Simulated assay, not measured.
Amino acid sequence: MYKISDFSEMTGLSKETLRYYAEVKLLEPAYIDPKNNYRYYDDGSFFLATLLMKLRGFGFTIQEMISVMEDESFVNLENLLLQKRNNIRKQIKELQNQIEEIEIFLQSGKDENK
């Protein structure tokens, strides 16, 4: 079992984030000492924290992460990841179109100054 400070160091998640994740039932401590309310995490918690960090890095919202964690079989995880990938590809195309429009606009200004 790991104290919250040790677990925070291990995972890179701040203590505040860990408390928030527990509050929204995203990653609850494995044990809370009833005497002092200290939170303790275990190796299973480490796996889940690593998964949450990956999902956050992929741009998942808190609500999307909760959805993944509620589906303990992770059946929908692949579908969510594929959907996220498609959304990112769409955003990239939209941004590339914006870049092209900016370049055309800049070029038109140069052409007018000639």
Rank of each mutant, 00 (worst) to 15 (best):
I92F: 09
N87H: 14
E94W: 08
S14Y: 00
P29W: 04
N97K: 15
I104F: 12
Y40V: 00
I104Y: 08
Y21I: 02
K3S: 10
E94C: 08
I92T: 11
K84T: 06
D6W: 00
S8H: 00
P34A: 00
L48W: 11
I104M: 11
E78L: 15
D71F: 08
Q83N: 13
N79I: 14
N76G: 15
R89Y: 13
G57P: 06
E78Y: 12
E23C: 03
S45M: 02
I92Y: 07
F47W: 06
S108D: 08
L80D: 09
M65F: 06
K90R: 15
K93C: 11
I88N: 03
N87S: 15
D6F: 03
K54C: 04
I62A: 06
R85N: 13
D33Q: 05
M10W: 01
E72D: 13
L77N: 09
R19S: 04
S108L: 08
Y41I: 02
A49T: 03
L80K: 13
I104S: 12
S14W: 05
E101L: 12
Y31P: 00
G57A: 03
Q96K: 15
E112C: 10
T11Y: 00
G109W: 06
I99F: 05
L26F: 02
F105W: 05
Y38L: 04
I102P: 02
T17Q: 03
D6T: 05
A22Q: 11
V24K: 04
L51W: 04
N113E: 12
N97Q: 15
Q107M: 07
E23D: 12
E9T: 01
L52N: 05
E72Y: 13
A49L: 06
I88A: 10
K84G: 09
R56S: 08
T17H: 01
Y31Q: 08
A30C: 07
R56I: 03
L82E: 13
E101I: 07
Y31V: 05
D42S: 10
Q96L: 14
K114I: 09
F74D: 13
N97A: 14
F46K: 09
L81W: 09
E103P: 07
N86S: 12
K25D: 14
S108W: 02
Q107K: 14
L52T: 05
D43E: 15
E70V: 09
S8M: 01
Y20W: 04
K3M: 03
Y20E: 03
V75S: 15
K35P: 00
I99M: 14
S67M: 08
E28I: 07
V24C: 07
R56M: 07
V68S: 07
E70S: 11
I66T: 09
F47R: 08
V75R: 15
I102T: 15
F105M: 09
K114W: 05
L27Y: 02
E28N: 07
F60S: 04
E16V: 10
L95Y: 12
K84Y: 07
L18D: 06
F105I: 01
L13T: 00
Q98A: 11
R56C: 05
Y38H: 10
N97Y: 11
L13G: 01
E103R: 14
A22P: 07
E70C: 11
K84N: 11
N97F: 09
Y21H: 02
E28K: 08
